[in-house]
């Protein structure tokens, strides 16, 4: 962990989540330490069932840890009340889910403005922000479409726009390309890449190596614990030719 703890946006120490008890006890997350610096993109990879989704839920305050602590922007969130947690989610965290989780009866625009409305913004401001974001994800022309009329990639872009609605400190994405074909995956990749460039802090949990490869740092997770960490920055450019069979 190269980031000094005090500058990190999101920090976890000894994070643990157990399910069941006695013989059937399962450690879904088992003693995870993590620091995510501002503007950093971190990908967590691992086989399904390794606890990575649970970890993401713990980091975003959707679920409570059995032990350890989570610090978001210098404030502990593992021991605060449900209500405070909800307030924290609406301002500091944006979620992107594998299954998009858009409201079927709301248009793309209404879906995006929903989180701003929940956060108590004025309807006018929420609407303006939603329009801006849809434009940013390249869906300005589809603002009035219902999710059922959008392709998978477009739906996920709407979901990303929704996650960005309240200018969160960190965006947490759970298998954002899990339900997408390769063309749609590319769509979302572009979007995440531009988020990264704009300095958005991102934590992505995935087993899609493609999206994991966009990260600055890649963490491998096995049986609830981190087993390997790779810094992907500082590239190997120039050797691409070898990969294509151009060099011997």
């Amino acid at each position: 962990m190269s980031n000094a703890a005090d500058t990190s946006v999101l920090r976890a120490r000894g994070l643990r989540k157990d399910y069941g008890r006695g013989e059937g006890l399962v450690r879904a997350v088992d003693g995870v330490d993590l620091d995510v610096g501002p503007g950093e993109t971190v990908a967590v990879m691992g086989p399904s069932g390794c606890g990575k989704s649970t970890l993401l839920h713990l980091l975003g305050g959707l679920d409570r840890p059995s032990g350890g602590e989570v610090v978001l922007n210098g404030r502990r969130i593992d021991d605060i009340g449900e209500k405070a947690l909800a307030r924290m989610r609406r301002t500091a965290v944006g979620f992107v889910f594998q299954a998009f989780h858009l409201m079927e009866e709301l248009t793309a625009l209404e879906n995006v403005e929903l989180s701003a409305l929940l956060a108590g913004r004025s309807p006018r401001a929420a609407r303006r922000r939603a329009e801006e974001l849809l434009d940013q994800v390249g869906l300005a022309g589809r603002a009035r479409f219902l999710p059922s009329a959008l392709s998978g990639g477009q739906r996920q872009r709407v979901a990303v726009a929704r996650a960005l609605s309240n200018e969160p400190l960190v965006v947490l994405a759970d298998e954002p390309t899990g339900n997408l074909d390769s063309a749609a995956t590319l769509d979302v990749l572009h979007l995440f890449e531009s988020l990264h460039e704009s300095g958005q802090t991102l934590v992505i949990v995935t087993h899609d190596t493609r999206i994991a490869a966009t990260a600055d740092r890649l963490i491998s997770m096995r049986d609830g614990a981190f087993v390997d960490e790779t810094r992907l920055t500082g590239g190997t450019t120039g050797r691409l030719g070898a990969l294509a069979g151009l060099e011997d």
Partner: peptide, 16 residues
């Protein structure tokens, strides 16, 4: 069930 959970993930409190 789904949409309530979603609203909460987006920051609505359980009370709300």
């Amino acid at each position: 069930r789904r949409s309530s959970a979603l609203a909460r993930a987006l920051g609505a409190t359980p009370g709300e």
